[in-house]
């Protein structure tokens, strides 16, 4: 692999709509940090459920806004409580309660869309002409499972999922036992094929850095709690497997 190829995923990943959080991981009136390419973001949700994205930097002292909090439907900085509205304009400076902040005090904001249980954002400056990629048909709403971080490059994750590195979404058929309370993944397979069925797990991957990938795991359609838990455990084993193989590959490269 050439050095250029190793750099490629990061650059490619900064374009278009990128997934920044699972909708359920961002409850009303909360904020989380995200990264698209070199752009660090504060992704926040107001009390009405609307999602916003802002540059992750307070214009006052440079503090990361993703370490802050949401109050009165504004993003507030943890340091001195400066508050920014949906358009990124500073509305409140607690140290000067009588002052109306100048319109020039603001953070850069980015477009966001919530669909298929995911929050998408784009930082490439292109006016959003199209929607984010549809993960499933509208007739099959998704059931969110979890977010999981893998300490390995996206190409290693793609390899384990059996998809091309350019494909950011994988669909995996996960066999499940119909008997609700057999959580043991290694339980003997029932000989009766009718007792087995499968769910389609949708995995959306996002390169956070060269050695760090974030996966958003969802299930196509509705699923009972036991199946969602099964998919969550499957994601943990995938993470452990990918990290082990990646570590082994590094050892081989250095021998």
């Amino acid at each position: 692999m050439t050095e250029q190829e190793q750099h490629a995923p990061e650059e490619v990943d900064a374009h278009g709509w990128r997934p920044v959080a699972l909708g359920l991981d961002l409850p009303p009136a909360s904020v989380t940090g995200a990264r698209i390419g070199e752009q660090r973001l504060a992704i926040w949700r107001n009390s009405h459920g609307d999602v916003r994205a802002s540059d992750d930097r307070c214009p006052h002292r440079g503090m990361r806004l993703s370490l802050g909090f949401v109050r009165d439907d504004m993003l507030a900085c943890l340091y001195h409580g400066w508050r920014f509205d949906a358009e990124g304009r500073c509305r409140t400076i607690p140290a000067h309660p009588g002052l109306k902040p100048a319109a020039t005090i603001r953070t850069t904001t980015f477009p966001t869309i919530e669909s298929d249980g995911l929050i998408w954002c784009r930082v490439d400056g292109v006016e959003p002409p199209e929607s984010p990629p549809a993960l499933t048909s509208p007739a099959h709403p998704t059931t969110p499972v979890r977010t999981i971080r893998i300490d390995a490059p996206t190409r290693s994750v793609s390899r384990a999922l059996g998809i091309s590195p350019d494909d950011r979404t994988a669909r995996v058929n996960l066999p499940i036992h119909d008997i609700a309370d057999t959580p043991d993944d290694n339980a003997p397979t029932p000989s009766d094929a009718a007792a087995m069925s499968a769910v389609t797990v949708v995995v959306v991957q996002h390169a956070v850095g060269r050695e760090e990938t974030r996966l958003y795991v969802l299930i196509e359609g509705d699923a009972p709690t036991t199946t969602i838990q099964r998919a969550s455990r499957w994601a943990s084993s995938l993470r452990d497997k990918v990290e082990r193989e990646h570590k082994d590959a590094i050892v081989v490269e250095h021998v």
Partner: peptide
Amino acid sequence: CRDYGLSHDDYPALRRWQT
């Protein structure tokens, strides 16, 4: 854990519990 540079962003379930 932010005291030594680990971010809460990688642990959404723990962040929910923290709240």
